[in-house]
């Protein structure tokens, strides 16, 4: 059987979380993983450790402590300013090999997936990708729930012998905890041995900060095929409600709305207080993206549409009539 570079006889009782930063703050998914990782660590009596590669730490270390990390492993180097798979894999590999944690959790972001996929092979260990739930048994075995076949089937995955037990988790799956900025922790600086030649990826252009993060919006107005190209009315409604606009896959594929707004299995998972779902049939690979929403309202012409089974309140009607009427009503109420 294939052997991981280190096994259960050498593992250290710690849960590591990859801390992703986008230049200003830690990524939401990193905070979510600290929250869930902290619960699992408390259950086992283990330490929760943040792994933070960056150019120079800003407030991220304190932010990690406030969200539950007992320790932050800090790797600072100019070559770590932005993610490149070569530099980040090298630094993470050396840190894991040196400290041998039992569990390593990463966000299933584009960069988190790149890093996790490389590391798992380099360490000859297993990777539970895109998990929807994480548990531990008393022996410290991580049990990850993943969904397959468009979300209709859930599988529980674990590894008995290989370490670290790696898992990636989609943004929005776990609620972020409440920060406590009085919490303290220890900082350990990692040695960094990177050379310019070892980095093959060249970042030609990088633009961030213009996109939308649907996972942070308390209200979502979601459009499906039934909306056609009329997303304008959904933006109007979202603005009145202080929310954001999301979509199912067909309007994204049609180019009516940008992909960053796609909700569901291949988009983002959201947990808004209120979701208003317009002209959506309600296939599982979409509804998985709003199943943790507080209240779901559905508007669809087809009374048989599955979306009504996934909604708290439904209106059988044409979105092109109902939404404008709702907008007028809200304007009057205001």
């Amino acid at each position: 059987m294939v052997k991981s570079l280190y096994g259960i006889d050498e593992e250290i009782n710690a849960i590591w979380v990859f801390l992703e930063q986008d230049g200003s703050a830690l990524a939401g998914v990193s905070l979510e993983l600290l929250a869930r990782g902290g619960e699992l660590a408390a259950q086992l009596g283990w330490r929760l450790v943040g792994f933070l590669p960056c150019r120079r730490a800003a407030g991220w270390v304190e932010e990690a402590f406030a969200h539950g990390a007992d320790e932050v492993l800090l790797a600072e180097d100019p070559l770590l300013e932005h993610f490149t798979v070569e530099a980040y894999t090298q630094v993470a590999y050396e840190a894991l090999w040196e400290h041998k944690p039992s569990i390593f959790l990463l966000g299933a972001t584009p960069n988190g997936r790149d890093l996790a996929g490389r590391l798992a092979v380099r360490l000859r260990t297993g990777l539970n990708a895109d998990c929807t739930a994480l548990r531990v048994n008393p022996a410290g075995v991580l049990v990850s729930e993943v969904s397959g076949f468009g979300g209709g089937v859930l599988a529980l995955i674990e590894m008995a012998h290989h370490r670290p037990q790696m898992a990636t988790v989609r943004p929005g799956v776990f609620p972020p905890g409440e920060p406590d900025f009085n919490r303290q922790g220890t900082v350990v600086r990692l040695p960094v041995n990177l050379t310019v030649e070892s980095v093959h990826t060249r970042i030609v252009e990088r633009v961030v900060g213009q996109g939308v993060d649907l996972t942070q919006s308390p209200v979502l107005v979601v459009g499906g095929r039934g909306v056609g190209d009329n997303f304008k009315m959904l933006y109007e409604l979202a603005e009145l409600l202080g929310g954001e606009v999301g979509a199912t896959r067909p309007p994204v594929d049609e180019g009516y709305i940008e992909r960053a707004r796609q909700i569901g299995q291949t988009g983002v998972i959201c947990r808004p207080d209120l979701a208003i779902v317009c002209g959506v049939s309600g296939a599982f690979h979409f509804t998985v993206g709003i199943q943790e929403a507080g209240t779901v309202i559905a508007i669809n012409t087809d009374p048989e549409a599955p979306i009504f089974a996934a909604a708290d309140y439904g209106i059988v009607g044409d979105v092109h009539e109902v939404v404008p009427a709702l907008i007028r009503e809200l304007q009057v109420t205001d």
């Binding site: 986008d22 990524a27 993060d213």
Partner: peptide, 11 residues
């Protein structure tokens, strides 16, 4: 596309 933006990479 990356969260909140995009990048162009060369390898």
């Amino acid at each position: 596309e990356i969260p909140g933006g995009h990048e162009i990479l060369e390898v």
